[in-house]
């Protein structure tokens, strides 16, 4: 077995140069929580590893012109600890906090979560719901912005060329009337891969008690996470009450049925998604709910 070589760029211009040397089997090493395992198990045999850990520019989280820019190498722990995220994107923080263990969160990165393209990746539904874009740099120095949907093409697959790398995730902030939440079902409370995950964001009209601009990002169903536009349409303009929560539950159940007909996991997921819907709704509109959960 030929040992892989490693390039360790220290800034974006060195990174560009490194990308120029990439061949089809080459791999970008971000946090490593999936790639190192794949290499160790022999599932992945790269000729070249481009380690991003030395590129400080990729770790920055900042707010510019109403958009939050998150460096691709920001770890999940960083997302949890960051005041800007805490204040403006609590649902991304929630998603980050529900990923893996503390150890995984200290190493794993948001860029890696996208690049790894796991159908169950926890930040993806959030990024979809917020219409986040991904900034992609290539070896020529050209940077383009692409949607999450463009970048992730399937389970474990992206549209990125071998000389491209995700440098930034840019999230346009929604206005102050928006509420958002991230919910997940795994097989344990913590350290679990999602069986279902969802981000739900809505614009809430306090006077009319109604919602608009509904955004539903659904994950762990099928080969890649997606926006559930049909459900969004149905919810748009509706008055918030228990009936609406039930509608969301039923519509999501139908969406699951549409997404994975005949799959072994369908009977469970189409039922459990109703619970996910109720939890999401309870998070968005806690006054409607007693806040009952396992911990009470």
């Amino acid at each position: 077995m030929r040992e892989a070589a490693m390039l360790t760029p220290n800034n974006l211009s060195e990174l560009r140069e490194a990308l120029g040397q990439a061949t089809p089997p080459s791999k970008i090493l971000a946090g490593g929580t999936d790639l190192v395992l794949a290499i160790h198990q022999g599932r992945c045999k790269p000729d070249l590893l481009i380690d991003l850990s030395g590129v400080e520019e990729l770790k920055i989280i900042k707010l510019t012109e109403g958009r939050i820019h998150i460096g691709a190498m920001a770890t999940f722990t960083q997302l949890m600890d960051n005041q800007l995220i805490k204040g403006s994107l609590p649902c991304l923080r929630e998603a980050a906090s529900l990923i893996g263990s503390n150890q995984i969160r200290s190493a794993g990165t948001i860029g890696g979560n996208i690049g790894n393209a796991s159908p169950a990746g926890d930040t993806i539904p959030v990024l979809l719901a917020f219409d986040a874009v991904v900034r992609v740099l290539d070896s020529s120095g050209q940077a383009v912005e692409q949607s999450i949907d463009q970048v992730i093409s399937g389970a474990g697959r992206t549209s990125l060329r071998r000389d491209q790398v995700i440098t930034e995730i840019i999230i346009p902030l929604l206005g102050e009337h928006y509420r958002s939440t991230f919910v997940k079902i795994g097989s344990r409370t913590a350290v679990t891969i999602a069986k279902l995950n969802m981000a739900l964001a809505v614009k809430y009209d306090e006077t009319a008690k109604s919602i608009s601009d509904v955004r539903v990002g659904l994950g762990a169903i099928g080969t890649k996470a997606f926006r559930e536009r049909q459900v969004e349409e149905i919810l748009n303009g509706r008055r918030v009450d228990q009936c609406l929560a039930d509608t969301l539950a039923e519509e999501l159940s139908a969406a699951v049925q549409r997404a994975i007909p005949g799959r072994y996991s369908l009977p469970y997921k189409r039922e459990a998604v109703k619970g996910l819907a109720q939890s999401a709704f309870a998070n968005l509109f806690p006054k409607l709910y007693g806040g009952v959960s396992f911990t009470t």
């Binding site: 360790t8 090493l29 490593g32 929580t33 190192v36 395992l37 150890q103 190493a107």
Partner: peptide, 18 residues
């Protein structure tokens, strides 16, 4: 590693430089 707990089975040795 630099104040954060990590799984050393998922970190490559060169990543700890500096």
């Amino acid at each position: 590693m630099d104040g954060e707990a990590v799984n050393s089975c998922l970190v490559l040795a060169p990543q700890i430089r500096g």
